[in-house]
């Protein structure tokens, strides 16, 4: 059974936003993966980006610079 670990979960206003974030992170070698947005974050059923918590500041900056609008950054244990 998988152990739960701390993650930085980034939610987006649109699915396209989440996929743009994935493309950016893949291109720049930033660790993380697309996940179904956790129920504790929102009642919406879109996608989110899950990354190691230490990448939060880098992600905030790079998403802002790339014009990718995040709905929120959440510290969760998944």
């Amino acid at each position: 059974m998988r152990r739960r670990i701390p993650r930085c979960v980034v939610s987006f206003h649109t699915t396209a936003g989440a996929m743009a974030a994935e493309r950016l992170c893949r291109r720049e070698g930033l660790e993380g993966k697309l996940i179904s947005v956790p129920r504790s974050v929102t009642s919406d059923c879109g996608l989110a980006w899950s990354a190691p918590p230490e990448l939060r500041e880098i992600l905030e900056r790079r998403f802002r610079e790339a014009g990718i609008e995040a709905a929120g950054f959440h510290a969760l244990t998944l």
């Binding site: 206003h13 649109t14 699915t15 396209a16 936003g17 996929m19 743009a20 609008e69």
Partner: peptide, 11 residues
Amino acid sequence: FLKKGFSLGRA
């Protein structure tokens, strides 16, 4: 189409 970036935009 989602993978190609389809979006109806945010609310």
